[in-house]
Design a protein around this nucleic acid. Sequence first.
RNA 1: GCCGUUGUGGCGGAACUGGCAGACGCAAGGGACUUAAAAUCCCUCGGCAGCAAUGCUGUACGGGUUCGAUUCCCGUCAACGGCACCA
Length: 800
Amino acid sequence: MDYNFKQTEKKWQEIWDREGTFVAGTDYSKPKFYALVEFPYPSGQGLHVGHPRSYTALDIVSRKKRLQGFNVLYPMGWDAFGLPTENFAIKNHIHPSVVTEKNVARFKEQLKSLGFSFDWTKEINTTDPEYYRWTQWIFLQLFREGLAYKKEMAVNWCPSCKCVLANEEAAGGVCERCGSEVVRKVKSQWMLKITDYAEKLLNGLEDVNFIERVKTQQRNWIGRSTGAQVKFQTTAGDVLEVYTTRPDTLFGATYMVMAPEHALIEKWADRLTNLEAIRAYQTAASKKSDFERTEVVKEKTGVRLEGVLAVNPVTGKEIPIFISDYVLASYGTGAIMAVPAHDERDYDFAKVFGLPIIEVVKGGDVTREAFVDCATGIMTNSGFLDGLSVEEAKKKITEWLSEKGIGEKKVNYKLRDWVFSRQRYWGEPIPIVHCPKCGAVPLPESELPLVLPEVDSYEPTETGESPLAKMTDWVNTTCPVCGAPAQRETDTMPQWAGSSWYFLRYIDPKNSDALASREAMEYWLPVDWYNGGMEHTTLHLLYSRFWHKFLYDIDAVTSPEPYAKRTSHGMILGENGEKMSKSRGNVVNPDDIVNEYGADTMRLYEMFIGDFEKAAPWNSASIKGCKRFLDRVWALMDTVTEGAVRGCVESAVHKTIRKVTEDIEGLKMNTAIAALMALLNEISATASVTKEELKIFITLLNPFAPHMTEEMWVLLGFEGQLNQTAWPVYDEKKCVDATVEIAIQICGKVRAKMNISPEAPQDEVLSAAKANEAIAAHLAGKSIVKEIYVKGKLVNIVAK
RNA sequence: GCCGUUGUGGCGGAACUGGCAGACGCAAGGGACUUAAAAUCCCUCGGCAGCAAUGCUGUACGGGUUCGAUUCCCGUCAACGGCACCA
């Protein structure tokens, strides 16, 4: 009897749906397991074969955990706000919500066809007002606590999307979405003070089980550095403050540099004798995008501030001040002390302007290049620091500065505040009213959700304002505080907003009083295992940790970190090894694979394709191997006999239970499947299978191929559903074979093999080895220097 | 430039904590069944030499430690990912 995957898969998917098989339980006395995968953006293209890689892996983990007695929550939803939908709506004059609804339906059908054990009763959609009501609520809390503020600032502006982009979305100077060149534009923007949480976000990494490269990337992104903030007196009377990580080199500071935007320049305007040249430089710098400004290759430029000098606080010498775009206004104090002898950039600049280069750490040759990597060097030309190590000098000078009141220890971060405004339609409206008298006033929580109004056109205005600005009926309102005529904020939130807390809503998606009930959060939080792409490490993952930590601080959630464990999957590439894309013509549609081979084969193949964390090219031919395997498992039913596990396969069965159990936990699905294939080969070699053996086999296989194994369960005459039974348990003692084949080496080279009991004493094994014919021949005429026996593995005889 | 990851057959990939390299699968070749094909089943499958037993060689490259190294150490090269004038 051949296996009809189409009929069987449909049958079980309907049963699971109808019976609510995978609905998370409400019995909070049971141990819980919360598995999470990144919810998709329901694009018009439909599901990508990359989605199921992650979803299948945690589906396997979830199914196994259920069999092991855990109360499992494995939810799914839609991250549905976003530009592609809006752009599609603009082009085709269809409301984004209609487009979203259609795309969601398609995605849902595709996900169901793959047999994932999602709890669909927890389904959420970020564009649902009942959902974004709480996204807005979180914003109001951030506003109340002073973590949301509006700021005039130069922002990354995409001229094509007519939209402000976060630094993260403008990487490399191009728009992440459309690829256009990003320019700078000054706009008033809502900002979130993620920098206030830099230290907490960094420290929190110590307590979570994230794969190391995720932690490293987050640490680099936060970019903590320690140094000193130092005050330099100037001849203008004002203090020019700088941040440095190398206070030890203070004696070598021969000039200073300020960012072109530095506020003191305006203050000093009267004194500056070359103001015109300075203005010209400022203008030129302001026109450049962040990307142009940070191009490393170019030669250093700048203008000296004629008329004002600074005083080096340790040498007492007057030193010149420059402005240059190699100093960033947004980091530290926006000004630096330049130590050309020990900093490459300062060195380059000093060379261009012919400035003195004074060596203060011995060991390099500062006439040729900057001596930067000088941690082991000894101080010189540095007065009271001379002869100290760099480390000692840092400590001493910092103490000295602090005693004199001209400097103090300081920590800085590369992390910037989060630009939270978008001038688009398809996002959460920001619940703020601008009152001429009261300023920015938060909407009362009782008025949430602030629903997106219907508009005629979704296109942003030419001035870059949100399409909502054109909706005067909606925009014009009254101030919630004083009742005077006021206007609504027309910017919307970025797509990251809805995804920053969605895992909280899954816990209790219908709750109308809170994000989720306290009781449910106490039980389910934190997420036990979160899998997603590496591309979200510094954006989504950091943002959501920030929101969660904030919510924890205001006592709105019950755990300090949202995710206990984070793993990451590699991309699935096209057959040619390149990234899958329409333009490359190498896209594989999951629907086609499910149609031709079935969901179980598709799931199995995606797990067998290779190391889960690494990128893997798709290979149509290899899928057949997985199909063959399933067909052979199905065919076992032809030779099944009543009975327990036979002695001839007992250790193989127990070893496989151990291997599959451990490998699923370690996300090594490829070797778990290989172990099942190997066990099948071993059982097949005996030309029959007992019912108990097959029962264990299909239980182990169930998380991978749930449809076929459920069907076999019924056909074998077992009661109920396989997914509601118990995961097999192995016996460590039964994992041991009576005899094992060991290698006998002479000087590290295998010369013979023999079978022994793994429990045989060393003496016995060694003499048996030496008695071996081939070994004896090799040893003839030589004297034995050393004999090594590795239990159950090998014997090595060293002879001369 | 800095940080991180990786380098194993024709291909995807295995190998615990230093212990028989190439598990498992794909592709390929040979055979069985078939009028034929598909499917299925059996055999071979890193390289060189040999009918074979077997020997030598082999985990990017060059060294080192060790009885023994894909694994540890030093150096070199290459690829991928992240950051990139962050003082």
